[in-house]
Amino acid sequence: MSWAAHELESYFLQKHVKVKVSYIAVLLGCLLPDLFTKLPVYGWQIGSFTLKAKVPYKYHRGWPGAGFTHSLSFGLIVGLIVLAIWKNRAWFVGILIGQAAHVFTDICDSVGTMVFWPATTQHYTIGMWAYASQAGRYGDAAAYYSSLGGIWDLLWLFLAIIGWRVFTRDFFFGRIVPDDPAWGWLRRKFSLSDRAMVALYRAFFVYGGCRIFSWTLWSRFRNPERATQTVDYTWGGPSFVDKVVIPGEGWGTFVQNTLVGMAGSAIICWVMWQLVGKRLWARAT
C-alpha cells in the first residue's frame, strides 16, 4: 500500500482539477479506502479483544473481504450517499476524484486493486514494490521505506511542493473556502481564526511530508532489524520481505476480465446514475 502518497495527492489534485471541488472531500476520498480497513490489516488490540484479519491482503484488497473499498464503484456509492445527505456537488466530485486517486495509486504494489469490482475481481498491479502489510505496521514501514515505495512518496511530495501556490493564503481563501461551505461552518462552530483554518488545510501536507522522513529514518536507524532490512530499490523489492503476489492467469484472461470489467462498471455506473445520481445531482447545489 502507499503511505504518505494518499495525503499528498489531495493537494496535487486540488491544483489540477478545474471544476468546483471540495478539498476536504478530496482528502477524505483519498483516505476513504483505508479508513476502516487499516486497523484490522495491522491488528488492533484493546485488553483481551484483538481485531486482526486472518489473511491481511485478502481482507484489505480481495474479495471476499473489504477489497471492494479499493474499487471505482465504491467511490461512486459513497459519493452518491454524500450527495444525498449534504446535497453538495463539490463534495460529490471531491469524494469521487480522491477515492479514484487512491485506487490507482495502490496498483503500484504487488497486490494491486480490484479497480472494476463488482464486474470483475481482477487485480490490477504493476508490482513496483512489495505488499507487506502481513508483516505488521513496523514490518510494512521498513519494507515500504526501504523500497521504491519510499521514492513514490517522495515523488508526490515533490509534485506537491512544485505546486506550492496551493499552500498560499490567497489560494486557500480565494478558491478552497469559496468552493466549500464546510469551511464557513468550521469557522463558526469552532471559532477558528484565519491562521487555524489555513493550518488545518496545510496540516496533511506537513504531516504527510514529515512521515516520509520519520519512517525512513526509523527504518535506517531505529528499526531493530535494520541489519537485515536494508535498502533495496529494485523493481518489486525489497527482497527481505515475504511479498504477497496475486498469481497471474495469463494475458488472455486478463484482457477478457478487463473488457468485462470496463463494460460492467460502465453499465453499473450508468444504471446508478439514471436511478439515483441524476435526481440527487439536480437537487444539489
Binding site: 483516505l31 491562521r195 496540516a203 504531516y207 514529515c210 520519520s214 526509523w218
Partner: peptide, 30 residues
C-alpha cells in the same frame, strides 16, 4: 515539521497517524 520528524522517529505510530499527526501541526502553529 522538524519536531514532528524527530518525534516521529521515536514515537512512530503514536504520533504518525491520521489524527495525532495533523492535530499536532494545527496545535503547534496556532
Amino acid at each position: 515539521a522538524a519536531a514532528l520528524i524527530v518525534l516521529g522517529i521515536f514515537l512512530t505510530s503514536k504520533i504518525l497517524n491520521w489524527i495525532v499527526g495533523p492535530a499536532f501541526v494545527v496545535a503547534m502553529v496556532t
